[in-house]
């Protein structure tokens, strides 16, 4: 390679590495702020502040959803399979909300570590399949469980 070009290539590579390292350190330092939500374990370990708007994410625990028959109030638990957090919410839940589904709720923690949510968002995973296949899988699962 021509020496001038080689020098320019080295300069550009060096600039890229330096900026990359700077951005990397910045993102590392901001990691807690870039995470969209706290996990139930983080809340159980007291990492999340009280009385500040924050988000909690996790799976809705099976059979934990309790709806008020008169109002839109609903209470449920989310888990990361290590710890659980109770969430209270008043409003319309997204279509994808169901037991076993990942959700992210935004609100404030009270003294009992119950999240008083103002917004509940549903998270979905990266797997897609037609309804017939999902049904067939469910049936197969029930069959093996009953056996």
């Amino acid at each position: 390679m021509h020496p001038v070009r080689k020098k320019r290539l080295i300069t550009i590579s060096a600039i890229l590495v330096i900026i990359g390292a700077a951005v990397g350190l910045m993102l590392y330092a901001l990691q807690q702020n870039i995470n969209l939500f706290y996990s139930p374990s983080q809340i159980a370990e007291g990492e999340a502040p009280d009385n500040v708007m924050l988000r909690v994410g996790g799976m809705v625990v099976e059979n934990s959803v309790k709806r008020d028959s008169q109002t839109l109030a609903v209470q449920f638990e989310v888990t990361d399979f290590a710890h659980k957090v109770t969430i209270q919410y008043k409003g319309i839940l997204p279509d994808l909300f169901r037991e076993g589904q990942g959700i992210v709720a935004q609100g404030k923690l009270n003294q009992d570590n119950v999240l008083i949510a103002q917004e509940v968002l549903a998270k979905h995973d990266e797997k897609y399949m037609p309804p017939e296949i999902a049904e067939a899988l469910d049936k197969a699962k029930q069959k093996t469980e009953s056996n």
Partner: peptide
Amino acid sequence: PTWGAWWV
């Protein structure tokens, strides 16, 4: 429709 928010 899926998450419940236009933007996060």
